[in-house]
Computed example of a mutant assay.
Amino acid sequence: MTDVNDRLLHARVVNDIRARIASGDLAVEKRIPSTAQLVEEYGVSISVVRRAVDTLKNEGLLQGQPGKGVYVIATPEQVAAERRSLESLASEVADLRTDLQALTKRLDSDSHARTVATEVAELRSAVEQLYARLGYAYPTSDAGTPKRRHRNTGT
């Protein structure tokens, strides 16, 4: 019963903080209340508050700054717009990969193989640059999904 209760409390805290961010009550670039303040405000345990904050960090709404606190970095609307933008970009990348595969197949039968090879190399370079701009490593096989690169290390 406690596990179900904790999940309900967690959802309530997450939804309330998310709503406060959306309304501007907790503004972008501003620090949210401390864990102790949130515990007192919501009347829940520290673990419930920490899980709620972690959930909102994973959603891209909050970011912790060691020794300083946790800050709002985006509104739910901004995160949704970015997600839609990334989905659109991913679709474009998929289209480019399809074009690249088609050009590669043409290489085998095309009498202008050198020209096509140059076009393929340029297209691949453009796709690799697009992946890099998105912070992803270019996949080495068609079966794999893009892997997120670490922001600071580029690996």
Rank of each mutant, 00 (worst) to 15 (best):
A94Y: 14
D3E: 02
S45W: 15
L89W: 10
D16V: 01
H10M: 04
L38S: 03
L38V: 08
V53S: 02
A19L: 06
V70F: 04
G64H: 07
Y136T: 04
A117R: 02
N152W: 11
L134K: 08
Q101G: 05
Q65L: 12
S141R: 13
M1C: 06
A143W: 14
T35E: 11
V72Q: 04
Q129H: 14
D95N: 02
D110G: 05
R83Q: 15
G24N: 09
K57F: 15
K30Y: 10
G135C: 14
P76C: 09
S45N: 14
Q65F: 01
L89N: 12
L26E: 02
A117P: 00
G144Y: 13
A36S: 08
H150E: 07
T118H: 12
Q63F: 07
G64S: 11
N15M: 08
T153P: 12
R31M: 04
D110L: 06
L100W: 03
T115L: 07
G24S: 09
A113E: 07
Y71M: 14
I17G: 02
I73K: 00
L86H: 05
E29Y: 03
T2P: 10
V70H: 05
V116S: 05
L8T: 15
V53G: 00
R133Y: 06
Q101R: 05
S85C: 09
A52P: 11
K57S: 14
T153V: 15
Y42R: 02
G154S: 15
K147E: 15
A132P: 09
V4N: 03
L130F: 14
S125Y: 05
L123D: 00
V28W: 11
Y131E: 10
A94G: 02
S111F: 14
A94C: 13
P66Q: 09
V4Y: 07
A90D: 09
I17P: 01
D3R: 03
D16F: 00
Y136I: 04
S91G: 10
T145N: 12
L56A: 02
L38A: 01
A117D: 10
E92F: 09
A102I: 00
V4F: 08
N152Y: 13
G64K: 07
Q63P: 06
E128A: 11
M1A: 11
L123T: 04
L9M: 12
A113V: 01
I17M: 02
L134A: 10
V39L: 00
R12W: 13
V116P: 01
A94D: 09
R149A: 13
N152P: 05
L134Q: 05
Q129P: 13
L61M: 11
D3I: 07
A90Y: 04
I73H: 06
T2Q: 04
D3C: 01
S45F: 14
K105C: 11
G69E: 15
R83H: 13
G64T: 06
T75A: 08
D142G: 07
L107S: 05
V14C: 15
N15H: 07
D142N: 15
T104R: 01
R151F: 15
D95Y: 09
D54P: 06
A36F: 03
R31C: 08
P146C: 12
D108P: 08
R31N: 04
A94P: 03
L100G: 00
L96A: 06
L8F: 08
S88F: 12
Q101D: 15
M1V: 12
